[in-house]
């Protein structure tokens, strides 16, 4: 349904031109002031030693960019981010789809009750729930260890700190995917399913052969939206681990935040941001490519 609007009436009324111009001028002014200009400023800044506190703005050439690519911390942060994003996206899609599919089943009553439960974490503010989870992960009195009868120092053990952040993210986000999937499931053509049922396809077969292919655009949507937002995650890191133990939970955006607003290396932080931007652009393009979709609409 890409371009339904075909021919427009040939006459342009004065009010149409006025309305259009007001909207376009405001729109362009806004995007220039708050996106284009900042992006250009950041791009220029990435070639400078830029510290607003010391009023430094000295040309460095490619030094910041070289520093990005030679920084061990950047690459390890990038690796953590990729692991984090892939794991969180995978669970978000799988759990969301599973929950949606289960709720779609005709044998389940009280659908809205379950939907309400699963969607609850999504609507609560991240800063607040991250605090709750900080206590849940506590090795001495935390809920998780007590429930599972284990003894893991979740946030201070290098093996578990990143998984802990992933667990929190999945818990908070899978409900969103579920609701979106559920909406898509209801809009799928019913006759396909009836035909499949007549052909004797089992529930599993229907899911794999019919539902998932039909839901491909929705899956793609969730994957892309999630990737973009997970590459920019930093609040759980800030609240739970501050990047620790050591640098084991440094995610790139947390690193950028620290460079920019703790160390005030605006130039280096800008260069880092652009590299992350390129990564996101490439990943998004790649997602489109493997899904074979041309556009989201």
């Amino acid at each position: 349904m890409a371009l339904i609007n075909r021919t427009r009436h040939p006459l342009r009324s004065r009010s149409e031109i006025i309305f259009r111009n007001i909207v376009i001028v405001l729109l362009i002014a806004f995007f220039v002031l708050f996106f284009v200009l900042p992006i250009i400023m950041a791009l220029i800044g990435s070639f400078y030693q830029w510290n607003p506190l010391r009023l430094q703005f000295n040309f460095l050439g490619l030094d910041n960019w070289k520093k990005v690519f030679t920084s061990k911390l950047f690459w390890s942060s990038m690796w953590h981010t990729v692991v984090f994003a892939l794991a969180a996206v995978a669970f978000r899609v799988v759990l969301g789809l599973a929950a949606a599919h289960a709720l779609y089943s005709r044998s389940i009553k009280h659908k809205s009750f379950y939907r309400t439960l699963y969607y609850l974490p999504t609507i609560t503010p991240m800063v607040a729930v991250a605090f709750v989870w900080k206590f849940i992960f506590d090795p001495q009195f935390g809920l998780l260890n007590h429930l599972l009868g284990i003894d893991i120092n979740w946030l201070f053990d290098g093996k578990y700190a990143l998984p802990a952040i992933i667990i929190l993210t999945i818990w908070k986000d899978f409900g969103f995917a579920m609701v979106i999937f559920l909406g898509s499931l209801y809009s799928l053509p019913k006759d396909c399913y009836e035909a499949a049922e007549i052909d004797g396809a089992g529930a599993w077969q229907r899911l794999v052969k019919l539902t998932i292919p039909l839901l491909r655009p929705t899956i793609l949507f969730i994957v892309i939206v999630s990737l973009i937002s997970y590459f920019q995650t930093y609040i759980p890191v800030m609240v739970l681990t501050q990047g620790g133990p050591g640098t084991q939970t440094y995610l790139v955006t947390y690193m950028i935040y620290e460079e920019a607003f703790v160390k005030y290396n605006f130039g280096y932080a800008s260069a880092l941001s652009f590299v992350v931007f390129l990564f996101i652009a490439v990943l998004t393009g790649f997602s489109f490519k493997i899904s074979g979709e041309r556009s989201l609409s």
Binding site: L33, F34, F35, L37, P38, I39, M41, A42, G45, P52, I228, F231, Q232, T253, I256, Y257, A260, F266, A269, S270, S273, F274, V276, F277, I280, A281, T284
Partner: peptide, 14 residues
Amino acid sequence: MVPGIVTIIPRYSI
């Protein structure tokens, strides 16, 4: 697609 953090620094100056 531009990470918010890229624009936050110059936006702050603006």
